[in-house]
Amino acid sequence: KKIKIKIKVYNPETKEVLELEIEVSEEEAEELAKKLAEELEKKGYKIEEVEI
């Protein structure tokens, strides 16, 4: 079964909002969402919402 992940991120420095969407297997979904959120935060983005 495929799971659709939508991530909306906001960069306070540039006032930019990015929306990302990807489909992955159920097993990958939670781990991938967690890794993406961590990487984006390292780059200065503030995570507003992660929906699985």
Rank of each mutant, 00 (worst) to 15 (best):
L18C: 15
K35W: 06
A33I: 10
I7Q: 00
V50K: 01
E21H: 09
K4R: 09
E49K: 05
K34T: 03
V9F: 14
E51F: 13
K42V: 06
A33Y: 06
A29H: 07
E38G: 07
E26A: 13
P12I: 13
S25D: 10
I5W: 02
E51V: 15
E16L: 13
K1T: 05
G44A: 01
K46L: 15
K4I: 11
E27W: 05
E26D: 06
E51T: 12
K46N: 09
Y45T: 00
E27C: 13
N11W: 07
K1C: 14
E48W: 07
E27T: 05
I47Q: 01
N11D: 03
K34M: 09
K15S: 07
E13W: 09
K8D: 01
K2Y: 11
K43N: 04
Y10M: 10
K43I: 08
I22G: 02
A37N: 02
I3L: 14
Y10T: 09
K34Y: 03
V24C: 15
V17A: 14
E31S: 10
E51L: 09
L36T: 05
A33E: 03
Y45N: 02
K46G: 07
I7C: 03
A29F: 02
K4N: 09
K8E: 01
V9E: 00
E13I: 11
E19Y: 09
E41Q: 15
E41R: 12
I22T: 10
L20V: 13
E51D: 13
E31N: 06
T14P: 01
E23M: 09
E27R: 09
E21R: 08
Y45M: 04
E23F: 14
E21C: 14
P12E: 10
I5M: 04
K46R: 02
E13D: 12
K35L: 14
E21Q: 12
I3V: 05
K1R: 08
I7W: 09
E30H: 14
E13F: 11
K34I: 03
L18H: 08
S25I: 07
L18N: 06
K43M: 15
G44P: 00
L32N: 05
S25R: 08
A33P: 04
A37Q: 12
E51S: 09
E28V: 09
V24W: 02
I3S: 11
E16S: 05
E13Q: 04
E16F: 12
L36K: 03
K15F: 14
K15W: 10
E39F: 08
A29K: 04
L20S: 03
I3D: 03
K8C: 03
G44M: 01
A37I: 10
L18K: 07
K15L: 07
E39Y: 05
E30N: 14
E21S: 13
L36N: 01
E31R: 05
S25T: 09
I47F: 02
E13R: 05
A29L: 01
L20T: 04
S25Q: 15
K35I: 06
I52M: 07
Y10G: 04
L36A: 05
L36F: 13
A33C: 12
E48L: 07
I52C: 14
E21L: 15
K15M: 04
E38L: 11
Y45I: 02
S25W: 10
E27M: 10
E23D: 09
I3P: 04
Y10N: 08
E49A: 12
G44L: 01
I3W: 14
E38S: 06
E41G: 09
E16G: 08
E41V: 11
V50N: 03
E51H: 12
I7Y: 12
K43A: 10
E13A: 13
K8V: 05
T14W: 03
E30F: 11
G44W: 01
K46Y: 10
E41N: 10
E27P: 14
E39D: 08
L20Y: 13
E30Q: 15
E49Y: 13
Y10W: 07
L20G: 03
Y10Q: 05
K8M: 04
I47H: 01
I7M: 12
K6T: 03
E19K: 13
K2D: 04
V50G: 01
K43Y: 05
L40Q: 02
K43H: 07
Y10P: 00
G44C: 03
I22D: 03
I22M: 15
E23P: 05
E26T: 08
K2L: 10
E19D: 10
E39K: 04
K34A: 07
E48G: 02
K1F: 11
A33K: 08
I22F: 13
E19N: 10
I5Q: 00
K15C: 15
E16W: 08
V17C: 10
Y45S: 01
E26N: 06
I5L: 08
P12M: 10
K2H: 05
V17F: 06
V24T: 12
E51W: 12
K8H: 04
E19S: 12
K34R: 09
K6W: 04
E30W: 05
L36H: 04
K46V: 10
I5N: 00
N11V: 10
E21N: 10
Y10D: 00
V50R: 00
L36I: 06
K2G: 11
V17G: 06
E16V: 10
K1W: 07
E38M: 15
L18A: 09
L36P: 00
E31D: 05
I52Q: 03
L32Q: 14
E39P: 00
L20N: 02
I7G: 00
P12S: 12
K2Q: 10
S25G: 06
E13T: 15
L20A: 03
Y10I: 11
K42S: 12
I22A: 15
I7D: 00
E26W: 07
L36R: 01
G44I: 00
Y10K: 11
K46F: 12
E41K: 10
I47V: 10
E23Q: 13
K46T: 08
A29P: 04
L32W: 10
V17R: 09
L18M: 12
Y45E: 01
E13P: 07
E16T: 10
E28L: 13
L32P: 01
L20K: 04
E31F: 15
L36S: 02
E38Y: 07
L40S: 01
E39M: 14
V9A: 08
E27L: 04
V9W: 11
E49F: 13
I52F: 15
I52Y: 11
G44S: 01
A29D: 01
K42F: 06
I52R: 01
L20E: 03
P12V: 06
K34D: 05
K8Q: 04
V24K: 01
E39Q: 09
E49M: 13
E51I: 14
K42E: 04
I5F: 05
L36M: 11
A37M: 14
T14C: 06
E19W: 05
L32G: 05
I3H: 11
K1H: 13
E31W: 13
T14Y: 04
V9G: 15
L18T: 10
N11L: 04
I7V: 06
K6V: 10
E26G: 05
P12Q: 15
K15V: 03
V9Y: 14
I22Y: 13
V9H: 09
E51N: 10
N11A: 05
A37T: 13
I22Q: 10
K2M: 15
L32I: 14
E48H: 04
K4C: 15
I47P: 02
E21Y: 05
E23W: 09
I3N: 14
K43Q: 14
E16Q: 13
E19Q: 12
E51M: 11
V50D: 01
K6N: 13
K4D: 01
K8S: 07
